[in-house]
Design a protein around this nucleic acid. Structure first.
Lengths: 339, 339
DNA sequence: ATAAAGGGTGCAATCGATTGCATGATTTTG
DNA sequence: CAAAATCATGCAATCGATTGCACCCTTTAT
């Protein structure tokens, strides 16, 4: 790479000390320098195409203007919108995001955390969902500034931004109840993932309130294949014992579609299916998926705001932000089949 | 954030100079220090949980160990796999990726480029597809090390990694021809995007070779809605004038599905539809989409390898890597409808 | 008119690492 | 056994910015 213009280069050309150049170019310190000098130096800096070296600045100021964003897997379609939401706020405030993927491995998360710390990130946005709290404890011990997003976070020492999962599950079950469903299956994700466990609990509570008969099965991951495997197993063991399935997220719901197809069943004629997240393209599935829409982009936005306020020591913002979700009714849910 | 342990802290505890600690801890220089000292210092560094400050190191070594990855939009599903491919290589070599989104705006790309340069990135992986070359020229003028991925790159001063788009288009058209189609529409993306123009040219060439009658229309973006709008317009003006559509990518193909549905037409019974990319979940669309599968993850991997070799001055690697693509036949393509 | 106050700049330390050169200790060589 | 080579370590400069302090030169107040 070509070597860049430094403060010293500008200073030499302007016939002043580097400190004067530095002060002239920085908004907050420009007042310490005479207007004429500021104007002259800015002009010269422009001509020379000076641009600051963030690394050098970061060393001195102990701020890297970089935020670590920890997600399980960027190819899970709910994360790109979150990341872009985060990024939109960060960029406008001069920060950059370093996005890393853990693949839900605590070991990898640990290694990535160390790497982010070495890079002197100013804060962390954590979208990984392990209920296991050891990483959270570690983050906190290190005095890291962080915000949790898209994961249950009660009793945790960081602010958080979540969708209203309980309300979403309730809306979905009420929708099914209104359609006449009495026996509903919940295909839950692994309980080590906080979103999975929150939704599972909400399912149980709401179903009880609505007087529904329930079954719960668990997938080993929040993925299409795990959902398919779990649902296949269920259909083989208990054919026709439920009229609707509420899946822990859209990927699992997609797995349910696959399993139904394999067993010659159709949604919603034989069984209704509801997902969670309203991930991109869920309206294009076959059938289009009834699901709970969560505002992922906004979740990213809010979490970034929370983090920056924390970093820059602004007014104390709320510790926990819960964003509303909405049920999106599409083809995959329908009336109880007549037998 | 808690202040971290520095080399000086370790040096003081070990009773040696910082330079000795530095040499002991770095693989390449550890040979300059006696084995006993290295061992002792490493032990102490471990106990104190020393970890290097990448910012300080970067200032001195003029290497940030950071790579800028420029994509149009992370929520376009082909990019997460590319990014993860890039990341898998970078991480294993100690680099991190700074991913930025241009939303196909030259202005934004320009601003992001400056920001990446200020952050002293060691190189760039560029996945934006403007045929307009001014940005490329700028990159080159600045002496930046870069690799292009997923975009046509002939006559450009950087190495590149692309899928074999021409072969993919050919395979798709041959498939249609074999099914008896004679009149085929190409729904192209905007020609300012290089992948769109490459595919468009390949379409024309192959169709001529196969003796197909063709029409070409253009969408204003590579998006579902742009595809839908363009296809609606076509269907209103020229109903039933073609029996198949080859879309410039899967998003456009999805737009075609929407337009067909609106006009009461079905794929493949009324018209066959083929996409490009084999993006995630294209097998779950209604109908499942016949498409050309491009190895996005591997493209990311190869581009990262190319870039790192360039940065570390390894053996000259090939300037251009073309990865094979494969046609994936699914439900959306079928025999010519009988009239 | 003189002292105090304030404005504008420069000097030099600092952030935490890497690294060329110097130095002293030890080993090898003739 | 002396000279030379080698080894292990320390010293200090350096990367490019920011910033506390000192200084000089004008104003302003008394």
């Amino acid at each position: 790479m070509r070597s860049r213009v430094t403060l010293a280069d500008v200073a030499k050309r302007a016939g002043v000390n580097v400190s004067t150049v530095s002060r002239s170019l920085n908004q907050e310190t420009a007042g310490q320098v005479s207007k004429a000098t500021v104007k002259k130096i800015r002009k010269i800096a422009d001509e020379m195409q000076y641009s600051p070296n963030t690394v050098a600045r970061g060393l001195r100021t102990r701020k890297s203007m970089t935020i670590g964003v920890i997600v399980p897997d960027l190819t899970n379609p709910i994360f790109p919108p979150i990341v872009r939401g985060v990024d939109s706020v960060l960029f406008s405030r001069g920060y950059s995001a370093l996005v890393v993927n853990t693949d839900n491995s605590a070991e990898i998360e640990n290694a990535l955390f160390d790497s982010l710390m070495e890079r002197q990130v100013d804060g962390l946005i954590i979208a990984t969902g392990h209920t296991e709290r050891s990483m959270i404890a570690k983050y906190h011990n290190q005095g890291v500034k962080a915000v949790l997003v898209n994961r249950e976070a009660s009793g945790v020492p960081f602010p958080s931004v979540i969708g209203d999962d309980a309300a979403g599950i309730a809306a979905a079950l009420e929708h099914l109840a209104a359609l006449g469903h009495k026996k509903v299956l919940h295909l839950a994700g692994p309980t080590v993932l906080s979103t999975a466990s929150v939704r599972s609990i909400a399912f149980t509570n709401t179903a009880k309130r609505l007087g529904l008969t329930t079954k719960i099965i668990k997938a080993t991951a929040l993925s299409v294949s795990a959902g398919e495997i779990a649902m296949n197993k269920f259909l083989e063991a208990n054919p026709k014992s439920v009229t609707a399935v509420l899946a822990g997220n859209d990927l699992l719901a997609l797995g349910v579609f696959h399993a139904l197809r394999k067993h010659g069943l159709r949604a919603p004629q034989d069984i209704s299916v509801i997902g969670f997240n309203n991930m991109p393209f869920s309206e294009d599935f076959s059938p289009s998926l009834t699901t709970v829409s969560a505002p992922h982009f906004e979740m990213g936005v809010e979490s970034a705001r929370l983090l920056i306020n924390q970093i820059e020591g602004k007014v104390t913002s709320p510790r926990k932000i819960t964003l509303p979700v909405t049920l999106v009714v599409r083809e995959s849910s329908g009336p109880v089949p007549k037998r």
